[in-house]
Design a protein around this nucleic acid. Structure first.
Lengths: 350, 350
DNA sequence: GAATGCGATGTAAACCTTTTCATAGCGCGG
DNA sequence: CCGCGCTATGAAAAGGTTTACATCGCATTC
């Protein structure tokens, strides 16, 4: 199943090219090209004549030819684990809002949290000639980075800060985010904690959030080994199931930290299923601060992530010319705790 | 602000091309090309020798050159109003799941519900050389369609069925969806209705849902002019505000139909703000059946939209070769009512 | 054993731009 | 009035692939 494999090219009356424009304007194609790319380099009257003809003919430049010759496609690849559940859409909007005015477009690909698939996707995007690639997280296959380096494709990492400072990243410290949650729960007097983390394998963000939470909990005097940890894919239904398991097996847990709002929303439902009330019986903290968090009942306390900002900053990086590149190459952003109604002082049962 | 405008091309030790492969394999570049595109046309041993060299050198074909020569880019443009709030992400996932295995990628653009911007975006995508474009809804500027036609770009419409049957569409009847909601509310005995519709100007989906609702309500004996209608952009906060306005000014309304789950989620909050309980005092119906609908408290009754399916069907259409094109050119899908806990028999106050 | 046809490979053109280098025109300082 | 430098334009090459067409060798058929 390939794209129009069988039939030959049939463009009938072809779209006009720069040759046609030049012929009508009585100038060379070089001049037409100049008008399109650096208008100020062409005398005003000739320029306007050409522009008029361009308009009349509805001429649209051929991006493939341009990309081939200039090796600049104005395409930026975006590789995210998934676009489900709006987790990454906020970043995407930030990216797009900056890229579109500059005439650049986003090529979207999903990996489904599979790093090998990520490698293939990167290859595919390089083949498409993208000028740059945006990745999520700083955990990638060696082959992925090799591909990127060998083909000299600009790339950046989001949703995390790369340990390797040579890798451009616009993100935040996931550990600090997790710590924020642990700290707040400790403040509220919770001693019996549980975590519904994302799958930490191959996922530095999920691992970081969990690690940050556990470390801070320990620092606040809670025995690390007493904390119940469950890992789940980021799906509502999985959060729900995880909460039920936790609550059935550990009747004394009074607070659950979730590695994503998606899990938290599911977990809140799981609590309800188990006949427990949030926040009276169980406090719940999420991560991401998705739009929906504010509209849940109760409103979800969560760790806010600068998603849109990351998108904008990544766009800045890809739009920067080589001279100002390093200025934009590392942007450290902050998470912050958004307190709503899903958290309350510990209410130890039994 | 343009992409690397200042600096010249500097690729240092260049990526290998088909010429290098041919040289090493001792064959012509045509044969290399054939191995890559129609392997079965090349003798097995030569083929494997070439493939080995391709692998060793980490050769990646230059998509721009391929696209230029073959006028096939394996890029599909997706134009949606927004990706916020996950309204269209389900369709996107459907698309991507089918496109990726075929080596095709999605170029994403947003219009922010602005049809003039849509025209510009279409131009931009044509310039990028996309093989096809996916639009949302069947309401577009004349210039948009002209652009598409003149440049012979395959395109299709989703989330609606085009009246013009010459326009490929994979969607559903928004009016039927609205009717489903009205019918159900009438069944439950509601007589005092309100609608929070999307902005209907330039939006056939929003208009269709509203129209379908009103028409069915009338058919069920409810005076059309008695129905309170408010239009709001698809944002949680706007739904919330709209609900408050409706409830303040019309104390006898017992049910609200929202043109999107986003509005409904906001409106449920608005009801709570107004001290009214859903569904005891007010029944609420949304539209879209977003994932989150199931996880709200109460679970949101809503009209399910075959989002993922539309994406898959659109992908099928773009992957089809010219001969089987018409088979996939029109796919009529169904909406259905998903009953949850946000609706109950009418409970007329005062 | 000649004619035919087919399968495998090579040659070279074409796709449409951008960009380098050359050229022409012109004003200006000496 | 010469030569210099600067600006506006043109000529032509280059970018990497696909593909129509030519070629060559070999097997098959009569």
């Amino acid at each position: 199943m390939a794209l129009e494999k069988t039939t030959p090219i049939d463009r009938g009356r072809q779209s006009p090219t720069v040759v046609e424009i030049a012929k009508r304007a009585g100038c060379s194609i070089a001049t037409v090209s100049r008008v399109l790319n650096r208008p100020e380099a062409v005398a005003i009257d000739l320029r306007e004549r050409i522009l008029r003809i361009v308009d009349e003919l509805g001429y649209v430049p051929n991006g493939s030819a341009r990309a081939l010759r200039s090796s600049r496609s104005r395409l930026i690849g975006l590789i995210v684990p998934t676009l489900d559940a709006a987790i990454f859409t906020r970043m995407l909007e930030g990216l797009e809002s900056r890229l579109a005015p500059a005439g650049a477009s986003l090529v979207y690909s999903a990996t489904g949290y599979d790093l090998d698939r990520e490698t293939r996707v990167v290859r595919n995007l390089i083949e498409k000639g993208v000028d740059g690639i945006i990745l999520v997280g700083s955990c990638h296959r060696k082959e992925t980075l090799k591909l990127l380096r060998e083909h000299r494709v600009r790339f950046a990492v989001t949703y995390a800060l790369s340990d390797d400072t040579s890798i451009p990243s616009m993100g935040f410290d996931n550990r600090s985010g997790g710590a924020l949650a642990a700290n707040y729960l400790a403040d509220l007097g919770h001693r019996h904690l549980a975590v519904i983390a994302g799958i930490t394998r191959d996922n530095d963000r999920a691992a970081g959030r969990l690690e940050g939470f556990l470390t801070m909990a320990e620092r606040r005097g809670i025995d690390r080994s007493s904390i119940v940890v469950v890992e789940s894919p980021y799906e509502f239904s999985r959060g729900r199931a995880a909460a039920k398991i936790i609550l059935n097996q550990n009747r004394n847990v009074t607070a659950i930290f979730c590695g994503s709002d998606v899990l938290a929303v599911g977990a809140m439902r799981g609590c309800k299923d188990a006949g427990l009330s949030v926040p009276r019986d169980i406090s719940m903290i999420g991560f991401d601060n998705l739009d929906i968090a504010e509209y849940m009942t109760p409103g979800l306390t969560t760790v806010d992530v600068p998603a849109r900002l990351m998108g904008e900053q990544a766009a800045n990086y890809f739009l920067a010319d080589n001279s100002s590149l390093d200025i934009h190459a590392r942007v450290e952003l902050e998470t912050r705790l958004i307190v709503r109604d899903s958290t309350a002082p510990a209410n130890d049962r039994q």
